[in-house]
Design a binder for these strands. Structure first.
Length: 580
RNA sequence: GGGCCGGUAGCUUAGUCCGGUUAAAGCACCUGGCUCUUAACCAGGUGACCGGGGGUUCAAAUCCCCCCCGGCCCGCCA
């Protein structure tokens, strides 16, 4: 069995946290909250237990196109179920998670865009397209990566794609074992499945005919790889299960209803390891081979391959299909995610703006609901997460039973696997506020602002500093990238504005205060005083201050703002408010 | 043609499975506090015929039926 999975999570202290309450509290809670809904992952785990399925959770994707955030449904949804399984004591065996890269699938179309090794979505040029077109119909493991030349980059398309998922799974703290489908065929792991599908040919045909109109009389559930040209678009012409041999002819094929692939005409004989099962047979074969007891999958599979997969598992392979969960696809900025349209998000894109905990939280939300992921609106998600966290640490009361459920049951599963939520209570300054705190360039100024606003203890630990600075960095990235109202930008150049003599005098006096090392409050007061002393309207003088530094009429509280900026810069700007 | 999800305050949503006191939260907005101006924070407030219609019930956002609107998936391959 290949599915020995290391345990990354501290198992003990999170186990049914709710039960650690005193019995009085427990009773009270039972009464007042008897209808509290169940975390979906717990419900999934319960089904696994009740139906005596093995605690092995699988996911998997075909490595096509851009590895995007949607692919992570396959990883993270399952990860929560694994955690839920670990909390149960009625499970036989050690819970674990596998992810198959379905990398013997053929390259079916030339994508418009690919993910560069740097994680950028880039368009392929004409030459690269032609290069790829030559490989249509070959398994992804045999298609060269467009970036194979880059130092340290994987050689094959399959590995290029998988490397992102592997890296992202690690960043998100998911202990999932990656399995190459191609290697499984090569190692003979599918021998039994292939042999069974072919020896029970009539049964195979019966089942598939119920689901696929195109599967006719001569249907053979095996796709040999052409020994000459390497394409897997051949047509089987004879089966000899005894010898483990399938004859084929490499003829023309149509892929994705779009590309015409010319076969090389070669006639040959393949062993049962030199080809692959069609998807509808391959999926249940994976369940059988890997001993899968649970699998989340997207709604695209819900009607077709799942239904046929269940029947193939039972009627052809004679095994029980896993428990399952159909997840909705999410939208990106209100539309379907599409690499060619440019609205595709990767894990990296999102981790540029939010902590991994927040992204995990997104995937902990009800999988059955279609929801919109919008980076421009990501502060809402962050805010929701922060609320859950506040409730978890008793800093706030739950607003409803869902918040309570997420705080009490789910939150700890959102944290990094090497952290103990009971030990480390993160410092999490509010997101939009953090974005503005980021106007200060250096860490000390940022920490100082946070400390003064009460979002950081007077004497923070290194970890608390790290938490806070990370939040500021992420929020600042978000604000600047989207150029929204929280993107406070200090003018690099002096404003193209005229300030009258009194105003300039007041600026000059303000500069004295700043230069002398005044605190934010003192600077704030100095603004009032200098305005009055020079017979300026307070409101107008504030506006002039914002105009001078931000080029706008208003902005964050001026004292803290000026205090957060580099002192020499502020003094110089105040003394010489304009050029010429 | 079949299937899934959604339509609840200006916006984003929770609550629907398991019907039950004045339908909840965040954002936005308004008022007050922090000595006067503006990000934070604290206290409070305005704001919802719960998409429409019918039914079941003492009681419906919640259960049943029909309809309307929005989104997605499948009906090739994977």
């Amino acid at each position: 069995m290949r599915t020995t999975v290391r345990r990354y999570y501290p198992k003990v202290q999170t186990k049914h946290r709710v039960r650690s309450m005193s019995s009085d509290e427990e009773n009270a809670s039972d009464i007042s909250d008897s209808a509290t809904s169940e975390f979906w992952a717990d419900e999934s785990a319960r089904r696994v237990a009740e139906n005596d399925r093995p605690p092995v959770v699988k996911g998997g994707v075909s490595p096509s196109g851009v590895p995007h955030i949607g692919n992570f449904n396959e990883v993270l949804r399952g990860a929560f179920v694994v955690r839920a399984l670990e909390c149960r004591d009625d499970i036989a065996g050690e819970p674990g998670q596998v992810f198959t890269s379905d990398d013997r699938d053929p390259l079916r179309r030339v994508p418009d865009t690919v993910l560069s090794p740097e994680g950028e979505v880039v368009e392929l040029d004409a030459e690269e397209r032609d290069e790829l077109r030559a490989h249509l119909g070959k398994p992804y493991v045999d298609v060269p990566s467009p970036f194979a030349d880059a130092a340290g980059a994987p050689d094959t398309w399959a590995e290029h794609f998988a490397s992102f998922l592997r890296e992202d799974a690690e960043r998100l703290g998911v202990p999932v074992e990656f399995v190459s489908n191609d290697e499984m065929y090569e190692d003979g792991d599918f021998d039994q499945s292939v042999r069974t599908a072919l020896s029970e040919l009539e049964r195979s045909r019966d089942v598939i005919a119920r689901h696929q109109r195109t599967a006719g009389e001569g249907y053979v559930p095996f796709m040999p790889i052409c020994a000459e040209c390497g394409r897997i678009t051949t047509t089987p012409t004879g089966v000899n299960v005894e010898d483990g041999a399938v004859d084929y002819v490499c003829d023309d094929a149509q892929l994705a209803g779009e590309y015409e692939v010319e076969g090389c005409g070669h006639r040959g004989t393949a062993t049962l390891r030199e080809g692959k099962l069609p998807w509808r047979f391959e999926w249940p074969a994976q369940w059988w081979t890997l001993g899968v007891g649970f699998e989340p999958f997207g709604k695209d599979h819900a009607e077709g391959s799942w239904e046929s997969g269940v029947e193939i598992a039972r009627e052809v392979y004679g095994v029980e299909p896993p428990e399952h969960l159909v997840y909705e696809f999410f939208l990106v900025d209100g539309g379907k995610m599409s690499a060619s349209e440019g609205n595709v998000y990767t894990v990296s894109d999102i981790l540029r703006y939010v902590e991994p905990e927040v992204l995990r939280y997104f995937f902990a939300l009800d999988p059955k609901k279609q929801r919109d992921l919008s980076l421009a609106e990501i502060h809402h998600l962050v805010n929701d997460f922060d609320r859950i966290e506040d409730v978890r640490y008793g800093r706030d009361e739950p607003a409803d039973s869902t918040e309570r459920l997420y705080a009490e049951r789910v939150y700890d599963d959102l944290r990094a696997p090497d952290e103990d939520p009971a030990e480390h209570e993160p410092v999490r300054p509010p997101y939009t506020f953090s974005a503005m705190v980021g106007v200060a360039g250096d860490d000390e100024a940022r920490l100082d602002t946070l400390r003064r606003s009460g979002h950081l203890p007077e004497d923070p630990t290194e970890t608390q500093k790290r938490d806070a600075l990370r939040r500021v960095e992420l929020a600042r990235n978000w604000a600047l990238d989207h150029d929204n109202e929280y993107a406070v930008r200090v003018l690099d150049d002096k404003p193209d504005a005229d300030f009258d003599a009194d105003t300039r005098t007041a600026f000059d006096e303000l500069a004295d205060a700043v230069e002398s090392g005044a605190s934010p409050d003192e600077i704030q007061n100095a603004v009032f005083e200098t305005a009055r002393q020079n017979d300026l309207g307070v409101g107008g003088f504030f506006s002039d201050g914002y105009r001078l530094f931000l080029g706008q009429e208003s902005g964050p509280k001026l004292g803290p703002l000026l205090s957060a900026l580099d002192r020499e810069f502020v003094v110089e700007r105040l003394r010489q408010p304009s050029d010429g």
